[in-house]
Write a protein that binds this DNA or RNA. Structure first.
Lengths: 194, 194
DNA sequence: GCGTAACTAGACCGGTCGTCATAGTAGCGA
DNA sequence: TCGCTACTATGACGACCGGTCTAGTTACGC
């Protein structure tokens, strides 16, 4: 890494982690500053757009990271069932590590903003979801699924994944991830058959 | 109806609708009061516990309502595929009516509160999710699924449902609901087979 | 009319976010 | 080494909005 950590990166890191746990409106800039160790003024130097800009950049960062992980997994050449298992095992692992105090930051922000109110954050989340879905479509296509079914598959998998985050946080249990994986594998099986 | 509307009920109604759109932290009491038409002081007369109590009661109300709808649907005697379709068509309808500015209030609140922070709201959401899941288990059992598979099924269906709310709000499209329904029907088919 | 209960309005305090004037630092030419 | 400039960084400040509470008003049985 070029530099161990800049205030800018630290701020975004903190935002990602805090939004996971309490959503966007649930965390104040004071907390962001405390957790990141950055001084107050630095925030508005690096992010003239204020809290909303941090939110958008946090979303963009997570979006890109996860998209990249999807891509690498797909390019590793695993079959679709293994792909599904790997994804849901990873998400289960993530929530477990955080002791069920966190979900997906996308889900948290998506729940709070619509296109009407908060268009910037909404657009950021929408873009990230679409990128993920495109990646999943590619994985499905490579497994031999036809184009129409691949779209159905990707949409359902994305929803299951995000829902598993929500439910497992509420239930303080990783079960939803594993069970969602089974549903998506069943869907894959059906969709590949025709 | 006994009385057309009491300030108490109006407040909870407004809370449910607003939490759907912007989450718990995203709406202030001022907005709650404006939307419900209730006078400012009435809030702490009806809800000594303040905003958090309103949140808990809103969650409890939605939880009970939805549980009841699950129960009625199950008792109507439809087969499991029709049951699944009906549920996801209903959720799709709900988000469409609100023009994708709203999701499930449970999901919105679940995303913001963990057991550590906000234990009351967390418990309320958890209770509602568990009640729904129990109802879905019953429906699966009645369709001939074995007990263990019924648990898997219900957990996956709950997650898919909540995820579809999140994703369809972000994507401004009902597609996630329909596609999730397909996944859950595929899972049902697999789980009934063994 | 009187006392109790139901209800309401407005003031209140605490904390929020964003601004700004100031301070530090790196680069550079003389 | 020094002075100058441009960039980066900082925390005190204040306007504002959040949720809460107390003092007051109305409704009603007796």
């Amino acid at each position: 890494m070029a530099k161990a950590s800049s205030a800018r990166e630290d701020l975004i890191d903190a935002a990602v982690e805090l939004f996971r746990a309490r959503g966007y409106e649930g965390v104040g800039v004071a907390e962001l500053l405390q957790k990141s160790g950055a001084p107050r003024g630095s925030l508005y130097f690096h992010f003239p757009g204020g809290k909303e800009q941090i939110g958008a950049e946090a979303v963009a960062r997570v979006g890109a990271e996860v998209e990249q992980r999807f891509r690498e997994l797909r390019q590793s050449g695993v079959d679709l069932d293994a792909y599904i298992d790997k994804v849901f095992k990873t998400t289960a692992q993530e929530v477990k590590e955080r002791e069920y105090h966190a979900s997906c930051p996308m889900a948290a922000i998506a729940a709070e903003f619509s296109s009407a109110h908060g268009p910037n954050l909404h657009a950021a989340v929408r873009g990230a979801f679409n990128a993920w879905q495109r990646e999943i479509v590619l994985a499905a296509l490579e497994s031999g699924m036809n184009a129409k079914n691949a779209e159905i598959f990707a949409s359902a998998m994305l929803a299951s994944m995000e829902g598993a985050f929500i439910v497992s946080k509420a239930q303080v249990s990783p079960a939803a991830h594993a069970n969602s994986a089974r549903a998506i594998k069943a869907l894959a099986s059906v969709l590949r058959a025709n």
